[in-house]
């Protein structure tokens, strides 16, 4: 089954990350790359890391009118910071996989709809 993992950053996590020195950041990235490498046989689309929430633009299509606003869809403390598609046996395998995720503290696991 295919799932998309949505990596979600909290304000706290983002602040902590910003406070890190270059060497620490490097180490954090290294662990993330290592995680992707460890699970490469289950990753069907490596997806993307997204730029920060301050770069987001939200568009609302309301009866033909285009409403453009600055910022993410929901002004919340938690925002999606990246996504990856995985292909695993079932939800338990997905749960096992994210258990070792070394970065942001929240992950949403969503099955991909079959079209």
């Amino acid at each position: 089954m295919k799932y998309v993992l949505m990596f979600i950053e909290t304000e706290e996590f983002a602040k902590e990350f910003e406070a890190k020195g270059p060497a620490e950041r490097e180490e954090a990235y290294r662990r993330v790359y290592q995680w992707f490498d460890d699970h490469r046989d289950k990753i069907s689309d490596r997806g993307q890391k997204l730029q920060g929430r301050e770069t987001a633009t939200t568009v609302r299509l309301d009866g033909g009118a285009l409403m453009t606003t600055d910022g993410p869809f929901i002004e919340g403390k938690e925002v999606v910071s990246g996504f990856t598609e995985i292909d695993v046996e079932d939800l338990d395998e997905a749960l096992r996989m994210v258990r070792t995720w070394p970065a942001c503290p929240v992950i949403e696991i969503r099955p991909v709809a079959e079209m």
């Binding site: 046996e89 079932d90 939800l91 338990d92 997905a94 096992r96 696991i109 099955p111």
Partner: peptide
């Protein structure tokens, strides 16, 4: 839809 398995969890789980 979410692929919740019909299985006894592994020992570590």
């Amino acid at each position: 839809d979410a692929g919740i398995p019909y299985r006894i969890p592994r020992d570590d789980e």
